[in-house]
Write a protein that binds this DNA or RNA. Structure first.
Length: 921
DNA sequence: GCAAGGTC
């Protein structure tokens, strides 16, 4: 760069705000002139500057993101113009869309008058690609341009001045990587979207589509994995079977407070094992303090705010959608109140003047006094912000750029978001909260329990960051070696629960971890799921798939393709990285990826029946005989007795089997699976006079002769309401047409779902699998020890004995088992899995004849009696007189009733939580 | 009518 005459330099930034900021910095606002370009958004700044001794006249303008779009050549644009498979090799072209033509003309006009072009696009791959778009336009207008790239990591004076004095050449590899990504996205997206839309749109009655012609069933490498996260969680919930567990809780009440100790074994799923340990504890209930640990705990403020955190926190704190958050943030940015809202960066540059930003906020009525304290050295509240480890090298973390106590045009959400940005920023430069934590461990009969208590000593950043709290409670003071008798020692039951539906913050988290989308596009992908009717969001910001979303994912899953998983995007991301660092060429990545995806597309098309089958589970076909209305009228079998909202209808599944399912599916999963030997089934007008709730319309069945025993008729007018013995027997003999479980994935199917389905068959009972009798289900078989054995896991440490006793409370037969624990190995006991009865065999006075009455209820009375009795040490037998109270588990051989036991759900001491009527499984 | 990525 030799000095000489003045060089005219065309500088182009990615957005108008950067053009203005950089022009301001370079010109030091001296001699800065502004004029309009052809685009009213992208003005042109002019000033003089010297680059390495070369006197320059600088023209500084901008684009607005990408200048060009990628599209198929005209002949392939119409949906029916070609086979979608052709889109993997159809010619594509880059062009400047209509709304960007003004910017293009400005660039052309200015480029003709300049000698140099300096590219100030964002320093990421997309920015580099946009840089080459600008180069293409400008070079076409002036092919003598000397082309340079400015590399900068923040809009800070020194960075910018250094950058312009150290110009480099643009990086073609970065731009190539984006070219590859664009082409792959377009070809995959367009081909699959056209394929599945044209296949399914007219084949099914997709009833929520208001205008059928506009229905597009889109596929995209970001939107589908996003949908996949939603569906996968939904399936996980559907597949969850509650499992009962047991835990021992210990509490100790003193004047100075209550300590609730947790059993350090946590949850035990083996009932017998838990009971044996509990028995040991109640026999030797003295607690000995084994450890007291006092320590200081710090709760650190969050990292500086980036886009994803802003979206997640606005969703958590205000239930704002990510899309709305970005809209409001954009408006706050445009009006100058916050910094650029699309940033990955969560660390401040060392050169940022953080104090000046805090000073701006000193006058605010809510957080102004906190800002003043922050700036006061004596308050010792200031702390350098932490580094979250992300830096996009283009934008700082989101922070306030202008003080405001609220503007007249602001909505409530503008106020909320501005407050979040300011409070978050003030929190970042604050000391962590300090707490004193105490952990106490005790030993009862060899079992360890622990409790922790916490008091906050200094709130520090929590004073300003009102969105976070730090829970904790005071506990009494203990010392090592101290002994006490617990106020309550209870054996409590609970059930495992499925995880919740994904919240918007969860979904953003999943996408972030899997690399789906960018900080600027994640909210768009989420919105797309809603717009395409693939998912819904409830008032609690939790997402459920719609029937359509679930069917699409199910269809591809059945094909064996993981197109709904994030792996495809991850693979593409790896390839892009390889292109950008030069280890792979763009052409090579394009060829390999598109070849694979085309093979996948062709295979998916061959297996389209899987998509059709999945859709048929949820939607009526369009091309069936008769009109939808007529068909729907004759299909109704009965009102659903489970949800009491929808009707149950007769359906034939794609595999030919029949079922009667609730139209409220998937909210209501009530279903009656019918024998697999049915060839035809037609709902009649005959109403069953014994089944309720009615009317229950009888179904005319025709069975396949060779698939049923010879003494049954092939024609049968049957009822699915529960009264039809013939149907029950044929169901048992022939099996049902319930869905076969796949070998992979938790989809509410598999072995889990088979039993789930069994539980859902509520309207018709088959033949008992234990005694082969009708009239009761296998779950209710009187020959079985407990009705609930199928739900509750069998004890690993016990085995069934040969004899049993029954109680005078619930009448359940209780199996004789053998304990296998260290202290009681080989000892026999009876346990009832229905009402918590437990008794050692040797305390039943040697009489273990089946049918003997054992008083379950005596435990309950013992539990109610003498709440202080356990503290008084062992004494004479208490509890119920007359009956052999020694047989009960809580009035043990010493006769000591244990106090404080009650249901942890409703507090009633007459039962345990596992049989609580209020229990919500 | 299709993707995802910029940006206003």
């Amino acid at each position: 760069m030799a000095a000489g005459r003045t060089v005219r330099v065309l500088n182009v930034a990615e957005k108008p705000s950067v053009a203005k900021a950089v022009a301001g910095i370079l010109s030091r606002n001296q001699g800065l002139r502004v004029r309009n370009g052809r685009s009213r958004f992208n003005r042109i700044f002019e000033f003089d500057y010297s680059i390495r001794g070369q006197h320059c006249h600088m023209l500084f303008t901008s684009v607005t993101g990408h200048l060009m779009e990628l599209e198929f050549e005209e002949r392939y644009r119409k949906w029916h113009s070609c086979d979608p498979a052709d889109l993997y090799h159809a010619p594509v072209r880059k062009f400047v869309p209509q709304d960007k033509l003004d910017i293009k003309r400005t660039l052309e006009e200015e480029a003709r008058k300049c000698q140099w072009l300096v590219l100030w696009l964002d320093c990421d791959r997309e920015g580099e690609n946009i840089a080459f778009e600008v180069v293409e336009i400008c070079s076409a207008a002036n092919n003598h341009l000397n082309i340079w790239r400015a590399r900068f990591s923040a809009l800070i004076d020194r960075e910018i001045h250094e950058s312009v004095q150290n110009l480099v050449r643009p990086n073609q590899l970065f731009a190539d990587a984006v070219d590859a990504r664009q082409e792959i996205d377009l070809r995959i997206g367009a081909s699959f979207t056209r394929f599945q839309t044209m296949l399914l749109k007219d084949a099914f009655v997709i009833d929520f589509a208001t205008d059928d012609r506009n229905l597009v069933l889109s596929y995209g490498p970001c939107q589908f994995p996003t949908l996949g996260f939603v569906v996968e969680r939904y399936w996980e919930i559907q597949a969850h079977e509650p499992e009962e567990f047991w835990t021992i809780n210990c509490s100790h009440t003193l004047d100075e407070g209550i300590a609730t100790f947790n059993w350090m074994r946590g949850h035990i799923f083996d009932y017998t094992y838990a009971v044996i340990i509990y028995e040991m504890c109640t026999l030797e209930p003295t607690a000995t303090v084994t450890k007291v640990k006092n320590q200081e705990k710090l709760k650190y403020p969050p990292h500086p705010l980036n886009t994803i955190e802003l979206e997640k926190r606005a969703s958590r704190y205000f239930r704002m959608s990510s899309e709305h958050t970005m809209k409001v943030a954009e408006e706050l940015y445009q009006s100058g109140f916050i910094s650029y809202p699309r940033t990955e960066t969560d660390c401040f540059s060392a050169r940022t003047d953080l104090h000046a930003m805090v000073q701006e906020q000193q006058g605010h009525p809510l957080w102004g006094s906190y800002a003043q304290r922050l700036l006061d050295p004596e308050a010792r509240l200031w702390r350098s912000p932490s580094n979250g480890g992300h830096d996009d090298k283009a934008h700082p973390p989101i922070h306030p750029t202008k003080y405001s106590a609220g503007e007249s045009g602001w909505s409530q959400d503008h106020h909320r978001l501005y407050e979040l940005v300011v409070r978050h920023f003030l929190a970042c430069v604050s000391q962590p909260a300090i707490g004193a934590e105490t952990i106490v461990e005790i030993d009862i009969a060899g079992e360890q329990f622990s409790v922790s208590g916490r008091v906050i000593l200094q709130k520090n950043y929590l004073d300003v960051y009102r969105f976070e709290s730090w829970g904790g409670s005071m506990i009494p003071t203990y010392s090592v070696g101290q002994q006490f008798i617990p106020t309550a020692l209870t054996l409590d039951s609970g059930v495992t629960r499925p995880p919740p539906l994904l919240s918007e913050a969860d979904l953003l988290n999943c996408m972030d971890k899997a690399g789906i989308g960018t900080d600027a596009t994640m909210h768009d992908h989420i919105k797309k799921l809603l717009d395409r009717c693939y998912a819904t969001k409830d008032s609690n910001t939790r997402f459920s798939p719609t029937n359509l979303g679930e069917a699409l994912v199910m269809g591809y899953d059945d094909m064996g393709y993981e197109l709904w998983k994030p792996y495809l995007r991850s693979m593409m991301e790896c390839d892009m990285k390889a292109v950008s660092i030069g280890t792979k060429r763009k052409a090579e990545v394009l060829e390999t990826c598109l070849q694979q995806m085309k093979a996948c597309f062709l295979d998916a098309r061959l297996n389209k029946v899987k998509l059709l089958e999945a859709m048929a589970i949820f939607f009526e076909r369009c091309n069936r005989p008769g009109t939808n209305e007529q068909q729907g009228a004759v299909d109704i079998v009965r009102p659903c007795s489970a949800c009491q909202e929808s009707n149950m209808v007769l359906k034939r599944k794609p595999d030919g089997n029949f079922m009667v399912g609730c139209l409220g599916f998937p909210q209501c999963r009530n279903v009656v699976w019918l024998p697999g030997s049915i060839s035809t089934a037609t709902v009649t007008n005959h109403i069953c006079d014994s089944c309720s709730p009615g009317p229950v319309f009888k179904i005319q069945f025709k069975f396949r002769r060779l698939e049923i025993p010879s003494d049954y008729d092939v024609d049968h007018l049957g009822c699915i309401g529960g009264c039809d013995e013939t149907l029950k027997q044929l169901t048992e003999i022939c099996g049902t047409g319930s869905r076969n479980p796949p070998s992979t994935s938790a989809r509410g199917r598999g072995t889990t779902a088979s039993s789930t389905n069994a539980q859902r068959v509520s309207t018709m009972q088959g033949v008992c699998e234990h005694c082969r009798q009708t009239g009761h289900s296998s779950n209710d078989c009187p020959t079985q020890v407990s009705r609930r054995q199928s739900v509750r896991p069998r004890g690993r440490n016990s085995q069934r004995g040969g004899s049993s006793v029954s109680c005078n409370s619930c009448g359940t037969l209780c199996a004789l088992r053998t304990a296998n624990t260290a202290n009681n190995r080989g000892r026999k006991f009876y346990s009832c899995q229905e009402c918590n009865f437990f008794v050692w065999e040797d305390s039943v006075n040697g009489n273990n004849t089946q049918g003997q009455s054992v008083p379950h209820a005596s435990y309950r009375r013992a539990a109610n009696s003498g709440s202080n009795s356990s503290r008084r040490g062992r004494r004479g037998r208490g509890g119920r007189s007359g009956a052999s109270t020694t047989n009960t588990r809580f009035v043990s051989a010493t006769g000591e009733p244990v106090s404080g036991m009650s249901c942890y759900i409703c507090g009633d001491p007459s039962h345990f939580a596992n049989v609580c009527p209020d229990r919500d499984i």
